[in-house]
Design a protein around this nucleic acid. Structure first.
Lengths: 159, 159
DNA sequence: TATGAAAGGTTGAACCC
DNA sequence: GGGTTCAACCTTTCATA
C-alpha cells in the first residue's frame, strides 16, 4: 500500500536519505532499486519540492563539543499562542528544537544547548519573556535517533 | 574562545552541515572560510571520526507522508535500566527518537510515527513489554529544528 | 596539518520517449 | 512519469611542503 502517492521507490529514497543524507548518492539508490540515477534525482527533487523532505542536517554531539548542558525545557503556552510562541522560541540563542504537543499543560518542549549555568539562566529568562512559562527543566542524558522503519521495504511486516 | 579544541573553521563547518548537510560541498565552505577545499574535507573527516558529527539525516514531514500520528510518548524507566530500555525502545517499529532525561519520573521521551490508532496501540504495548511504563501520550502538533547558533561565527554575542 | 593535482564519481539541466 | 547525455562540480587519493 502506498501512502499519499508514495511508491516503493519514494520510500526507499526517503529511508536511505534518513539513514545517511550525505554519503548516499543517487546512483547508489538507483542501483539498489533497479532504476536510473536520474530517476532517483527527479524523485528526490520532487520530494523536496513537496516538502516531504524538509531538509538535511548533521547530528552533532554537543557534549563532545564542550557544551555539557544539553537540556530539555518543558513549557506551558496558552493554546491560542502556542504555535506563535514555539516559533519565537526557536529564535532564542541556544535553542535547537521546539516540539509543540496538542494537549496537556506542558505543551511546548524546548531542547537547548548550553555551556554553563549562565547560558541556561539566560535561555530560561528569554523563554519566560516571550510568554512561555517554564514548568520543568531536565538535563538530557542521551538522545538516540533512528530512521523511520515504515519507509524500509525490508521491514514491512508490523504485528 | 574555542571549545574542546574546536577552532573557528571547525565551528563554521559544523554550522554549515547542520544547516544543509546534503547540498553544502567542501568547496563552498572553503571559499567562505578562505581555506582550500582539501582542508575542509580533512576537518570534516576528523569531526566524523571523533564522533562530534555522528551522522547526517533527512528531515521527513511524516504528516505529509500520510502518517498522521506523530506522537510523543512519555515513559518512566527505573533509573538503573534507563539507558538499556532507551536503546531497546529505539528498536520498536515506529520509534524514531528516544531522549533520556536525567531526573524526574518521566525520564524517557519516545517520539513515534504511526498511521493509525492500531500502530500506536502496538507501540505502546511494545514499550510496556520492554519494561517502560507509559505515563503520557500526546500528539505532536509541530516540530521545529534549527542549527545551533553557538557554532555560527556571525552570532557570537549572546547577552 | 594544509595544500594542490589527476582520476573517477556525482549532479543538474535540457531533451527525448 | 522514466531515461539519456553532457558539462560542471565534487570527492578521493596521493604527493608535497
Amino acid at each position: 500500500m502506498t501512502l499519499e502517492g508514495l511508491d516503493e521507490l519514494d520510500k526507499k529514497i526517503i529511508h536511505e536519505l534518513q539513514t545517511d543524507a550525505r554519503h548516499t548518492s543517487s546512483g547508489t539508490i538507483a542501483d539498489a532499486a533497479d532504476v536510473s540515477a536520474s530517476t532517483v534525482r527527479n524523485r528526490i527533487q520532487r520530494l523536496e519540492q513537496q516538502g516531504l523532505i524538509s531538509g538535511y542536517h548533521a547530528d552533532v554531539e554537543y557534549e563532545s563539543a564542550g557544551y555539557q548542558l544539553y537540556t530539555l525545557i518543558i513549557c506551558t503556552a496558552p493554546v491560542p499562542r502556542r504555535e506563535e510562541l514555539a516559533e519565537a522560541a526557536l529564535e532564542v540563542p541556544g535553542v535547537v528544537r521546539v516540539t509543540e504537543v496538542m494537549t496537556g499543560e506542558e505543551n511546548v518542549h524546548v531542547s537547548v544547548v548550553g555551556a554553563d549555568g549562565d547560558d541556561l539562566s539566560r535561555i530560561g529568562r528569554d523563554l519566560d519573556e516571550l510568554g512561555l512559562e517554564v514548568a520543568d527543566e531536565d538535563l538530557i542524558r542521551n538522545e538516540h535517533v533512528d530512521a523511520f522503519d515504515g519507509f524500509d521495504a525490508d521491514c514491512e511486516d508490523r504485528s
